[in-house]
């Protein structure tokens, strides 16, 4: 079993779903965005409260309470698992079976935030994120939730314009299909020589008339993406 940051879930229908888990850094950065937003609101409201007097401070304290405890709950339950900060970093909270998070688990994970905060600045929470397999803090562990990347990768098909699609000469397995497609898309910007070198590996499997191995592999990759 090779190391990977993926969460696999089998649906009751027997279909495998997978999602990429999110670790400490994007979560910390998203938290800082949310923290800044909340701090901004609190400072603004405090200034208003100064002019309003005691009643203003009463309202200020209630809003403070709501922002402290209920801000993440609201966004997790009603806005697709994403606070504003999580939206910026394209990550979201879901149940560990990849279904949307509900009120109960959301409340559990956000009340336990104060335990994760212990003893100072999320010491326990960070320790848990670094040591659990699915990057969960205490609140996530108790609520059965994980944080995943919310956007799956989108192909940039423009890289393919210059390629002629080539129908493969016999069936190609799923794993190899992905390799062919990645080769065609060349998302890593491999050099010409490197492309040729890799394509030559499978030379024995190519048709005898294939002239340049890389051109052939690229063409098949484009065909596999659906181009004809």
């Amino acid at each position: 079993m090779k190391l990977d940051t993926v969460a696999l879930v089998e649906t009751p229908e027997g279909t495998d779903l997978h999602a990429d888990l999110v670790g400490l850094l994007p979560r910390a950065l998203a938290y800082m965005v949310d923290f800044s937003i909340r701090a901004g609101i609190i400072v603004a409201l405090w200034i208003v409260a100064i002019f309003m007097g005691g009643t203003g401070f009463g309202i200020f304290l209630i809003v403070f309470f709501l922002l402290e405890w209920w801000y993440p709950v609201y966004f997790e339950v009603f806005r697709g698992g994403q606070t504003w900060g999580k939206r910026v970093y394209k990550i979201k909270v879901v149940s560990d079976d990849l279904t949307p998070i509900r009120l109960g688990p959301s409340l559990i994970r956000n009340l336990l935030r104060s335990a994760d905060f212990f003893p100072s600045f999320y010491g326990v929470g960070i320790l848990c994120l670094l040591t659990t397999r699915r990057f969960q803090r205490l609140g996530d562990l108790a609520a059965g939730t994980i944080v995943i990347y919310s956007e799956s990768e989108v192909y940039d098909a423009s890289a393919l314009d210059a390629i002629d699609a080539v129908a493969p000469h016999y069936p190609i397995g799923e794993d190899q299909q992905t390799a062919f497609i990645n080769f065609a898309l060349n998302r890593g910007n491999m050099s010409e020589e490197r492309q040729e070198e890799i394509a030559e590996i499978i030379r024995p499997r190519l048709p005898l008339n294939a002239d340049r191995a890389s051109a052939y592999v690229r063409g098949v990759g484009k065909w596999l993406l659906g181009a004809r």
Binding site: Q176, N182, S191, I198, I202
Partner: peptide
Amino acid sequence: LEGWDIEICF
């Protein structure tokens, strides 16, 4: 840059 994933697969 070096297409390791592709090389392994091939």
